[in-house]
Design a protein around this nucleic acid. Structure first.
Length: 296
RNA sequence: GGCCCAGUAGCUCAGUUGGUAGAGCGGGGGAUUGAAAAUCCCUGUGUCGGCGGUUCGAAUCCGUCCUGGGCCA
């Protein structure tokens, strides 16, 4: 298997630029591990790599899924595996902000059944107490350990039990298969909190004036996942005249900040295999990339 | 100048006939195995504008002053 170098961090941390530089230095390519940069027609809002970055090195798995389609971590892993097979290629640079997508590539996921739209549609009709009851019938242990308020997790656990015909608690041993091998490294771009908040604010305004509004206006019946991208509902509200442009920017900034916080929490937990790289406004992507390349 | 309304957590506001305060949002922390930019959990001591007074006890009543807003001159 090909060696892997993960570049992760919260949104607006400058991952794309560092990844592009690093791939350039290594004569390699950048592989996307971001749940929203996979979509077509969402480039601005998802902060997909810019022209200059795309020109720096080949980019894989970016902007290739129609916005009307659903995509998920498992499909993404399947799509990425062929790109990671040749052992003699230079290390692949994998980057993105979606912890789950990263984890699916850094570790082998458990062998569980895939999602089933039909089952989900049916379960969506039930209310929380019914979902909890349903799970209890299928798997009392899982019902005990699953947050009874978390619709997503309840649904997925019921789905797994139904599809496999066995209780989830038997199938999911909660221990990831360590896929990390020698030569695989992960780097976390670590910003000082206030500085990242400033960057998020600036980037939001930049996005709005760089086509984000037109992009959302042009979205034709996006998939449920796609419609959940930060910025979509806020810009739609602005387009309908429900909120001002300033309010829209404020709401997007807040949502992005909260997202960055969740990312921080996720990656903190992954710190066993991720080394933190302190980064600030005076560090250039090229310098960071060089530093990483030297440590490989 | 006179009258009226408002002044309670970073923000928006609740606080029933007086028993020293509580929600939402924001913020902070956490969870996270095929929807993950999703979904969910935990976390609220603040001179109740200031100063006096009444009372066993006042954010709640009285007086006065300050700051916003409105109406009348």
């Amino acid at each position: 298997m090909r060696r892997k170098c993960f570049i992760v961090g919260p949104t607006a941390s400058g991952k794309s630029a560092v990844a592009a530089e690093l791939a350039h230095l290594l004569g390699s390519s950048v592989i996307n591990a971001d749940a929203y940069q996979v979509y077509q027609g969402l480039e601005t809002i998802s902060a997909a790599p810019e022209e200059s970055e795309l020109a720096r090195a080949p980019h894989e798995l970016f902007s290739f899924v129609p916005a009307q389609q659903e995509w998920d971590a498992h499909q993404h892993r399947q799509a990425a595996l062929p790109l990671l097979s040749s052992a003699d290629a230079p290390p692949a640079v994998i980057t993105g902000g979606s912890g789950l997508y990263i984890k699916f590539l850094s570790h082998g996921p458990s062998d569980l059944p895939q999602s089933d739209p039909q089952i989900r549609r049916e379960l969506d009709q039930l209310d929380l107490t019914d979902l909890v009851e349903r799970l209890r019938q299928l798997d009392p242990i899982a019902a005990e350990t699953t947050d009874p308020h978390n619709r997503r997790y309840l649904t997925r656990n019921i789905e797994i039990s139904l599809l496999s015909g066995r209780p989830v608690s038997e199938l999911n041993d909660k221990s990831w298969k360590p896929e990390l091998q020698a030569g695989t490294l992960g780097f976390y771009l670590e910003w000082e909190r206030d500085e990242l908040v400033k960057r998020i604010e600036q980037r939001t305004h930049q996005m709005l004036s760089a086509g984000a509004i037109e992009e959302v206006a042009a979205l034709q019946s996006p998939s449920a996942t796609c419609a959940k991208a930060i910025g979509v509902t806020q810009i739609q509200a602005y387009l309908k005249g429900e909120i001002s442009r300033e309010k829209c920017a404020e709401l997007i900034t807040i949502a992005t900040r909260q997202y960055a916080k969740r990312q921080r929490t996720w990656f903190r937990r992954e710190s066993q295999w991720l080394s933190a790289i302190p980064i600030s406004s005076d560090s250039s992507p090229a310098t960071i990339a060089q530093k990483i390349a030297d440590s490989l």
